[in-house]
Design a protein around this nucleic acid. Structure first.
Lengths: 326, 326
DNA sequence: CTAGGTGCAAATAATTTGCAGAGGC
DNA sequence: GCCTCTGCAAATTATTTGCACCTAG
């Protein structure tokens, strides 16, 4: 919970005096969950202090937006609502027209497509809004679907970890198979080491996942928060499939490089896009690890090419193109 | 241009009297392009008739929304804008924060993802908003990028045709190859016929595309309006690739069935989602054609299985599973 | 003749602003 | 003491509504 005063003091980038009123309003805002309208906030404030005027609340909200504490969101109701911004990544919304609650989600997939559209239209996108209007499960079925929001902070971390774990798992599988298929002893050793490392790190991530579950035992009952198709099988799945179609040592290395590069790019980009949070942390750490693997593989690839060159000096590349589609 | 009175009379589903004022307002609205605010419309109306009150404009706008002539859109400016709805499919927006103009696009890909998210959260989605805020090319580079909107109506038809043509082309390729690979004479004939049909229809679609270009010679200079990844290679591309991995006659038929089914579903679904327009027409016609092909293939598949059963009566299925991944 | 459409002015609703006084540094 | 924050009331902006009047079917 980022509601402590200690946190708040760190939260004042732009000028502004410390003032009891402002402090009070910010505290009430941060202590609240969900999406408040200016009026909601006034009501809440009035409960503990009758003497705060509506204008001050509006002014403080504007200040919070400027300071990066709050984000102004528009659900098409003819007035704005405000949500926490601190530690929370930008996200999209599902908005129930019946109960007027809203639910958050992230979709790396949608973001990628949005970027593609902007690029195709040579449009410099700075922000995007995705809102799905409709009826939530509870309003349709009547029963309480126990979704109850649940700190998006934790959900983001949970899903980030799941993706990282799936990637490690598929990486492990990839390197194990690659090791089995590699003829060159030195190359085999590289793959074996990497497989081991992936497995080890996977263990660590799983432990971390366990810790997360301890913090909120119901965490796993919440639906997906971060949608990312690549996550399902892990980013190495495609590479593993290509391995099975038969490749030589050099090709195996190259496929590994491509997978690590894709993985590194995804985690780096996604990690950087977000404001400070545990999920961001996980993504960036993971990006670093993948970077190291990538460098290792690239070094190994160069070494292999050099050795091969020495082995058959005058013989030009015989390029046994293995006709494997495309 | 759907601005004629003839068109308008057809446009009054719900009750309402013919009234000169309303007629006048609707005409001015439909004669205009882009996204008008209520105030913009009042200004335009006042130019030809001083005696129309602001309230009537608001009331008429509401009536137009109910009648399906207009759609209310919210660009987060603190007021609503209105856009034509008649003949225009629901679309998403790119919104320039500098010049405040907005540009439209469709994305089947984003729609699919949005649907997936809603399903995963058991949310009954009824409508979705996708808005990309940023700076348009013109505002960034200064020069006129000649984009000038261009009837989205025509752009939709253009892109629908392009997708249909790409699909026909890939279908032709698929059936040609399938014919070449098929041993059974009767099966070969079926594939050959289909290849011919795809080619023929492709010609027709290309002619239609040509007609479209005549209506607006600059049509091709406009950027993509309808984003759909499947369009690039056509919906049969994947099937063709699988053919090349070696299959028997029965498998080839099955792959064809799967492609036609996917294609039919896509065109049907997309066609139905849209309001009356040329693009919709193209999609639905195409869906029908694919349906016919699908039925033909299914009949042929059943016939083949029957013939095979007769050939080796007591022999149980020998199921030569060709280990081709998954 | 009567339901619905229209104008005008007043009402709402969300948000902003002018100004005088209060408070932190 | 100065500069910013605050409260209050008035202003602004977008949109709606009450009510008397008008008009097409």
């Amino acid at each position: 919970m980022p509601t402590t005063l200690a946190d708040l003091t760190r939260l004042k980038p732009s000028g502004g005096k410390r003032s009891s009123k402002r402090e009070q309003i910010v505290n009430v805002f941060l202590g609240q969950e969900g999406h408040l309208s200016a009026d909601d906030l006034v009501d809440l404030i009035r409960r503990e202090d009758q003497r705060i005027s509506r204008a001050t609340v509006y002014r403080t909200l504007q200040w919070m937006v400027d300071a990066g504490i709050a984000r102004k969101v528009d659900f098409g109701e003819g007035r704005f609502r405000f949500e926490h911004s601190y530690r929370q990544p930008r996200h999209f919304h599902l908005i129930c027209k019946t109960c007027h609650r809203s639910f958050e989600f992230l979709s790396s997939d949608i973001e990628a497509l949005v970027e593609e559209v902007a690029t195709a239209r040579s449009f410099a996108a700075s922000q995007s809004v995705v809102q799905i209007y409709g009826t939530c499960e509870e309003c349709r079925t009547g029963r309480d679907s126990s979704s109850e929001a649940g700190q998006t902070d934790l959900l983001f971390a949970r899903d980030a970890l799941r993706i990282a774990i799936a990637t490690e798992r598929s990486g492990f599988e990839f390197y194990s198979r690659a090791a089995r298929l590699t003829k060159d002893a030195r190359g085999r050793k590289v793959f074996e080491d990497l497989a081991l490392e992936e497995q080890e790190h996977m263990g660590k991530l799983e432990a971390r996942y366990g810790e997360l579950l301890e913090r909120d035992p119901k965490l796993e009952s919440h639906p997906t928060f971060l949608f990312f198709k690549g996550a399902a099988n892990g980013l190495f799945a495609e590479g593993t499939e290509r391995l099975l179609q038969g490749v030589n040592d050099q090709q195996a290395l190259m496929i590994g490089i491509r997978c690590e590069r894709g993985s590194h790019r995804f985690f780096k980009k996604y990690g950087e896009r977000f404001e400070d949070s545990e999920g961001k942390q996980i993504f960036l750490e993971f990006a670093d690890e993948e970077r190291e693997h990538l460098d290792l593989l690239v070094r190994e690839y160069r070494a292999l090419v050099r050795r091969q060159g020495r082995a058959r000096r005058p013989a030009r590349r015989k390029a046994r193109t293995t006709r494997s589609a495309r």
